[in-house]
């Protein structure tokens, strides 16, 4: 736990304060740790690397949309690990794997190694975006994909800044739910 804890917690705290660069570095590091974790777990029951990538992306979405549940007074990596473990168990249940075949309680594994060899997941962002209501799709396209500021997006779309923020927030929650649903099926 000590290996990455202090550094990643710093990045998380900066991210919670709205520091995009720190947050990007954090998600990048976590994705590598989580990829290694899920590949090790899922390869034991003969699952493909794509499936590990699917679950890992589901976890990144969940980490993001539920990041307010991290308590800064607590250690950071146990919070990540609890989510990773919860999603692993949920995934194994949904895909009818036997929990007995996959060792669950070894928190150390999550910080042990990073896996840089990403593959494409089965999630298709464009298709998922099409299912969103217009305002949410517009807000996410502008602010999260094209990198416009909230003020610019509001001006172009004829919406208020708070409406843009609310639509980004709700849209991401819907995307997170769609990705979770896809991962489980």
């Amino acid at each position: 736990m000590t290996l990455n804890e202090a550094e990643l917690k710093q990045l998380m705290l900066a991210g919670l304060d709205g520091d995009s660069a720190a947050y990007r570095t954090l998600l990048d590091r976590l994705s590598k740790l989580l990829r290694s974790y899920y590949r090790a777990k899922l390869s034991r029951i003969g699952r493909e690397a794509t499936e590990a990538e699917d679950v890992m992306q589901d976890v990144l979405m969940a980490l993001h949309t539920r990041r307010h549940t991290y308590d800064p007074n607590e250690l950071f990596m146990p919070w990540v690990y609890a989510i990773a473990r919860y999603k692993l168990i949920d995934h194994l249940r949904r895909t009818r794997a036997s929990l007995a075949d996959v060792p669950l309680d070894d928190a150390g594994e999550l910080v042990a190694q990073e896996d840089h060899s990403g593959v494409e997941s089965g999630h298709d962002l464009e298709i998922l975006m099409r299912e969103l209501p217009d305002k949410m799709r517009y807000a996410i396209q502008c602010v999260k994909l094209d990198g416009l500021s909230v003020a610019e997006a509001a001006k172009r779309g004829g919406m208020s800044e708070s409406a843009i923020k609310v639509n980004v927030h709700r849209g991401l929650k819907i995307l997170a739910a769609s990705i979770a649903r896809e991962t489980k099926s």
Binding site: G18, A21, Y23, L27, L60, M61, V168
Partner: peptide, 18 residues
């Protein structure tokens, strides 16, 4: 989708959290 695309989306213009 590549994980990198997802990370870019999530970390662009990230909102501060209460």
């Amino acid at each position: 989708m590549k994980t990198d695309e997802l990370i870019t989306m999530l970390s662009t213009n990230v909102e501060a959290v209460d």
